[in-house]
């Protein structure tokens, strides 16, 4: 930049006719102590400020001095207030309407200001930055104590609320768990009851069918269905024959009651001959009748089995009424093998 341009800028700056942007930039230039003819700038700034003395000087109105004094007192009070609250003092010195205050009857506000500043018992005299800092520290520690007290109380309240919520949560969980467990116990009870029932029925079955269960310990048990000879007969049952062991088990229903001098006798009917397997009586509550030492007739020779009514002491040959017959080769025959 040429010297001429620099001089023109300095003159414009000194007389105050730079636009905002150029003013800001030039001001920064000065504040950064950049290379400028500062002596020349100082001369220009000085000469400009002499211009007002060319004007006809006027004394300001008398009340203006008091206005200034009152403004300064207000500034001072504001600074004290800011000190107390620990805030940074910000004073708006923009144009304000001058209004009369009610602070004092006297017109000498500078005297009041001086009295406030120079009386030992008055408010803090020193209002400049260093003392401001010192007083701030003192106020700040009191403020901090107050704040920490409030914080402790808040923390206590929060802890109490959390504890209450935890207790409520635990109670709710406990309540729910109790009912869950109760339900589970109920189910287990039911399960136990049904299991007991099952067990009881199993026991009853086993009790009722013990003879049959035992009989099925034998290998190759021959099961022959029995039925009445008469179509209208309700006699039915099964004959379990273990030829190897020479034992048989009879299970037959609806046999008629016979007189005490009579008995039922079971016969094997083969091709050539009829053999007695044994005799039995119907005993109430007994489902099966076991016959032992039955004739060892080969299975292929056996044509049928029959139950007859014979004299009490038995018979050599079947002579009485035939109540039930079981064919050796009928479709209902099974051979149960033990595994």
């Amino acid at each position: 930049m040429s010297d001429q341009a620099v001089n023109e800028m300095m003159s414009a700056f000194a007389v105050g006719c730079m636009d905002k942007e150029n003013y800001t930039n030039f001001k920064k230039h000065i504040e950064s102590k950049s290379d400028l003819p500062y002596g020349e700038l100082g001369r220009l700034q000085a000469i400009v400020t002499m211009l007002p003395f060319v004007l006809e000087q006027e004394q300001p109105p008398a009340h203006l001095k008091n206005h200034v004094g009152r403004r300064l007192m207000a500034i001072q009070d504001e600074m004290k207030e800011k000190l107390k609250s620990g805030k940074t003092l910000i004073i708006d010195t923009n144009q304000k309407r001058l209004t009369k205050t009610k602070t004092s009857a006297t017109n000498d506000s500078f005297a009041q200001l001086a009295a406030a500043n120079e009386t030992p018992a008055a408010a803090p005299r020193e209002l400049h930055v260093e003392k401001l800092t010192f007083n701030e520290n003192k106020i700040t520690s009191e403020t901090m104590a107050h704040h920490s007290e409030s914080s402790t109380l808040s923390v206590l309240w929060i802890v109490v609320i959390i504890l209450i919520l935890m207790v409520l949560g635990l109670a709710y969980y406990g309540y729910n768990r109790y009912y869950e467990l109760k339900e589970e116990i109920g189910k287990l009870d039911n399960s136990l009851t049904s299991t007991k029932t099952e067990l009881r029925s199993t026991n009853e079955f086993i009790t009722k069918n013990a003879a049959l269960i035992e009989f099925f310990n034998y290998d190759n048990v021959w099961v022959v269905p029995l039925s009445g000879t008469d179509p209208s007969s309700k006699v039915s049952g099964k004959l379990y024959v273990a030829l190897t062991e020479k034992e048989a088990l009879i299970q037959v229903d609806n046999l008629p009651n016979i007189t005490p001098d009579k008995t039922f006798q079971v016969w094997i009917v083969s091709k050539n001959q009829t053999y007695s397997m044994g005799k039995f009586f119907i005993e109430p509550g007994s489902k099966y009748v076991k016959l032992t030492n039955i004739p060892g007739i080969p299975k292929e020779q056996i044509l049928q089995f029959k139950i007859t009514e014979e004299p009490r002491d038995g018979s050599v040959v079947p002579s009485g009424q035939i109540y039930a017959v079981g064919l050796a080769k009928s479709s209902g025959n099974k051979t149960m093998k033990k595994y």
Partner: peptide, 8 residues
């Protein structure tokens, strides 16, 4: 107002 502001 300017006078008061200046001394303030």
């Amino acid at each position: 107002n300017i006078v008061v502001d200046v001394f303030s």
